[in-house]
Amino acid sequence: MDLLDKILKRLRDVFVACANIILALMLVSNAVNIGWRALVGTAFNPVFPWTVVGFVWLTFLGFYVFVHDRGDVAVDLVTSRLPRVLQRAAGVLAVGVTLTMLVIILATAPRLISSQSDAMDMIGIPRFALGIPLFVSAALVMIVTLRRIPEIWRGPPEHYHVPEGAD
């Protein structure tokens, strides 16, 4: 499955690039807006509403990135003390819960898109556009989660946080 991992990694890089560009645009446009207001006295009013859109997109793009990079926080206080069999059971349950949430997000996407087709104020694009990166990320997170099932079987549950000292 090396190829799949490679693709997932490459997509992660693409998501990072998109998120970074959005963030950079948010910074630059706001900096210009602040400066312009102070020096010239007029404001670019669409900057703030667009910044909020960027902020939402940034979050959802980053969602895939932090899950891919095992940046989520999980607790192993209990599971690390369980016998092997129960560890596996807990691991499977954790994956089950994760997948349930992803299924919910993906299954509701079509209805959400059809119910939020009105344009956002001052932005002009439909409201559902906010959620598009969430749906794409959720699909990818699902693949990543499925891909990690064998890990649960092989050893003690691999937790989502990187071990101490990794920084």
Partner: peptide
């Protein structure tokens, strides 16, 4: 004003400097 094109444009037409 809040982020609404009509309100922003109207108040700018009155000469105001609109801030969202």
């Amino acid at each position: 004003q809040w982020s609404n094109d009509l309100m922003v444009n109207a108040w700018e037409h009155l000469g105001a400097e609109v801030r969202i």
